[in-house]
Structure formats: C-alpha cells, structure tokens
Amino acid sequence: MSKGTILITGATGFVGFAVLLKALESGHDARVIVSSEPKAQKLRSSAALLSLNKSSQYSFHVVPDLQAPGALDATAKGADYIIHVASPLPFQPVESKHLHRLYSQRAGCRKNSGSVKRVVCASSAAAFVSPGELFGPDPETTLSKTEADLNEDVYSEEGNPIPNILTAYMGSKTAALQRSTRWMKENGGPERLGFDLVSLAPTYVFGRHGLATSVDELLSKSNSLILGMVVPKERMGAASTFSEAEFASGVHVDDVADCHIMALDQKKIPGGETFLLSTDPVWNDIPMWTRKLFPREVEEGLLTCHGQCETRKVRFDSEKAKKAFGIQFKGMESVVRDVVGQYLELVKTP
C-alpha cells in the first residue's frame, strides 16, 4: 500500500534524483515533473531507477516552465505532498547579464490542490552566510551559523550588477526562503491553506550521482570539490580549479534524500521550520582517506592526491536537524568512498 503520492520537481538533478529513489524505496508513489520529454526519457532509462523495479509507482509530467502561473496546479491534484528540489546550481559559468533572470526562479504552484498536506522545499546553507563571510578573510575564531542567521539581503534590485555567480546563488536562496515563509503567513498559514511548509538547507552535497554516466557529469556538481584534490589534473577539465580554502561544510546526498522523505512526517517534523543539514569536514583529510580506501589506485597513478584545501573557521550547526530527524550524518570517509569510488568506476568503464 502506498504511503502517499509525492509531486517531485528537480528529479533530473543530483539531489532530486536521490530524493526520487528514496521516495520510491520508502513506498511512496511519485509524480515526477520534468521540463521536456527527453529529460523524462533519461530518467526512464537510468540504471538506478530501473533496478528498483517500481515502474508502477511513478509517472512523468512535462512542465516546460515552473515559473508560469499555476504551472503545477493540475499535476498537484490528488497528490499528498510536494517536494520542490528544482533550482539552478552555481557550478556552471553564466554571463553576468543573465544572473538576475536565472536565479529568480520560483515554482508556479500558488494554491492548494485540495489534497496536499505538506510542501518540502530544498533551500541551501547559502541563505545563511553573507558575501562578506564567503569572500572575506577567515574569522579569528570559529563562526557557527544556525537557522537564526538567515540573511536579510544579499544583492540589490534588478538592473544593478551582481559581482559573480555565487553571490547570485546566495541571493536567490535567501529571497526564496524569505518569500516562501512570508507567503505562508500572508495567506493565512496552514489553517487556511490546508498545507504547511518545511525547508531543508544543505551545505555542499556529495555522494554517488545516480544519473552520471561519465566523469564530466560527475564533475558537474559539488563532487568536483572532492575529486579536484585527488584525481590527475588533466582529468578535471573545466572543473580543474578549486578553492584554496572552504568552509567546514558538507553533507552526504543519501542523508539529504533521507531528510526530504522524513520531513513528510507531520507527526514527527513540525511545519514552518527550516533545518540546516551539514557536517564539519576537514578538507585536507580527503587525500588521507583516498590513500586509505584506494591504495592500489593511488600507487598506479589513477589517483594522485595532489590537492590542498584549508578549512575555514566557518561551520553550519546541524544540531536542530539531528535532533528532529534522529540522524547522524555520514562523515568524510563515506563521502570519499562513494565519490572517488564512482569516479574510478567511470574511468575504468570502456
């Protein structure tokens, strides 16, 4: 018996696909929103989805423009939940003149279908850190960010230049979280609307990419931060550069997917809440774990462990999520095992 029907956006992406798999594994039915039929076909033919043997539990629905008014209204009818993961990500170059448009996307569902009980939105820890903290000097003492540190504003009104893609991304996530919570309040909240809202804000997300069939696809997401430290530089291609220092922030994609599904439980997880999802990695431990887990490949030169990346004194406190979800997030050993392991599988595949 189904545990309920979930409408899912963003399932053609790294995190969204992991959420889709977890939804099906947990016994839910899924209505998968895609922007085109070719993207639906990519999901249909994916080995990870086919291996579940649950084709009767999911269906695909083409919605070309999520920002169109009422874009999801028809598809949401009869659904019990909505999980909104679709979002641009700051890992591909974008011309500065397009930043405002690209990072102002909002889903086009503005009213209850009559059946939806909860909406779970994928936000980001980027909404809790300012450009000054991101691009400025490392603080003298560790700065611990919590859910109370939501940004007030990141960039100015449209028409003024945004300096870079990361600032645009931070601004979009800040605005989306502000607008969604404000919209809920202005429209009477759960009592009047009939559904409530939970927002999940992960930091960098790492792990096996269920849709990646090439090294380039694996490198197109935040996994490039892991691989940039341990694989030969010539294999990195356009993703060959990585920071000299990064925040102490990262979370396994499996944990992010688990939290999205657990967040549907209205008896356990209160509505109207936002949860940061993160661990505190030490970046320079990545080569160490790689040597320990893949000694033969290091000796053969398939892995070089050449990278260095300092850990900045900025972290994201996930105690609220750990307590609410009853979860202990996977550490860097699991991340390296899965990310580097998948890289090696793709390199060795003829």
Rank of each mutant, 00 (worst) to 15 (best):
F195Y: 04
K330G: 12
Q92H: 12
P69Q: 04
T5V: 10
Y81N: 03
S35Y: 12
F316W: 14
A148G: 08
T142M: 13
H100L: 05
D338W: 05
G301Q: 09
G108K: 15
R110S: 15
V119E: 04
C121D: 11
Q67R: 15
D216K: 12
F17M: 15
L303Q: 03
G171A: 11
M184K: 00
A176H: 10
V336I: 03
L276A: 12
L303V: 07
G228C: 08
R312N: 09
M288R: 10
S51D: 06
L89H: 01
N223D: 05
L218G: 03
L134M: 14
F316S: 09
M262G: 02
Y204G: 08
S334D: 12
G136Y: 12
A40P: 13
P202T: 00
T181N: 12
K145H: 07
H209P: 09
N223H: 05
F135W: 13
T146M: 14
K77V: 12
I33Q: 03
V32Y: 11
E333N: 07
L66N: 02
P295Q: 02
G16V: 01
T167M: 07
A74W: 03
R179F: 09
H252T: 03
F195N: 05
K22A: 11
H100A: 06
S220M: 02
R31L: 05
G13F: 01
R44L: 11
G237N: 01
E37F: 03
G250K: 00
F247T: 01
G228L: 09
I33N: 04
Q105T: 10
Q342Y: 08
A168P: 03
I261P: 07
R31M: 05
L227R: 00
L227M: 00
G207Q: 02
L346I: 06
G70H: 10
K233T: 14
V85M: 07
C259E: 04
A47N: 05
R315V: 15
I33D: 03
F275R: 06
K292Q: 08
V314R: 02
K322S: 12
K323D: 14
V339D: 01
L21I: 07
E25N: 15
A126T: 04
R291W: 02
A47D: 04
F195V: 05
N284K: 06
L50S: 07
F275S: 04
G136M: 09
K267T: 05
Q266F: 05
L43H: 02
S180D: 03
D317T: 11
L211E: 14
G114A: 00
P38E: 10
N187Y: 03
E37K: 10
F14Q: 15
R44E: 13
A122M: 12
K320I: 09
H100F: 09
E37Q: 14
A263M: 08
Q178C: 03
I327W: 11
T141K: 15
L20F: 10
T9K: 04
V116H: 05
A321H: 08
V15R: 12
E37C: 04
Y155V: 09
A257E: 13
P64Q: 09
A48K: 13
E25Y: 13
W283H: 05
V215W: 02
S220P: 03
A11E: 04
A48T: 06
Q308A: 14
S59Q: 13
Y155P: 03
G228T: 12
V298L: 00
T141M: 15
K185S: 15
F17L: 15
T167A: 10
S172K: 08
S115H: 08
H252A: 01
A79H: 02
P287F: 02
Q342N: 06
